[in-house]
């Protein structure tokens, strides 16, 4: 299945879930409606697309933009040796999206990281707790609104920077 055919097939199957298609160094990039993320992923995981691997799941904070957070998913098909990038914008206030746990096991920790760093809620996640920072850490460190030098020590520190 070539690149053109693939996008045609995805469009035909998923229709209005896909808002835009572009190309990045030969790999397809799809922009999704955030409400359709889970359904699209479930479809892409099955034949004929067979994107069996969730390579990465991360987030970008575009502070000034309308939809402020952008989730980025990277999928990989072992059978066809192709990659696919999917993006979905989330609003600044209460960003949330459906979880991918249940489709890919590694989504659990990846989503916890995005939750920890950006405060994106993943609906249906079985254990949505901080994974990199610690209990009692306030705010989300990779948000643009997080003060860039703010430290939250767990024990009293001598002196100040």
């Amino acid at each position: 299945m070539g690149q053109e055919n693939l996008i045609e097939a995805i469009r035909a199957k998923l229709g209005d879930a896909v808002e835009g298609v572009s190309d990045s160094f030969g790999d397809a990039v799809l922009t999704l409606r955030s409400a359709a993320v889970r359904a699209v992923m479930a479809a892409l995981r099955e034949a004929p697309f067979e994107y069996a691997v969730l390579l990465d799941l991360t987030c970008v904070d575009f502070a000034a933009a309308e939809g402020r957070f952008e989730l980025v998913y990277h999928l990989y098909s072992l059978t066809r040796n192709v990659r696919l990038r999917l993006k979905a914008s989330l609003p600044a206030a209460d960003p949330s999206v459906e979880t991918l746990v249940g489709l890919w096991k590694n989504a659990e920790w990846l989503e916890r990281e995005v939750f920890d760093m950006f405060g994106v809620r993943f609906e249906g996640h079985p254990y949505l707790k901080r994974i990199l920072t610690y209990e009692g850490f306030e705010g989300h460190a990779l948000r643009k609104s997080y003060p860039w030098r703010l430290e939250q020590p767990r024990i009293p520190l001598k002196g100040d920077v």
């Binding site: 920072t133 460190a141 997080y146 860039w148 030098r149 703010l150 430290e151 939250q152 020590p153 520190l157 920077v161």
Partner: peptide, 8 residues
């Protein structure tokens, strides 16, 4: 490193 994570 001077950020949220690292002890100075």
């Amino acid at each position: 490193y001077q950020n949220y994570a690292v002890v100075q």
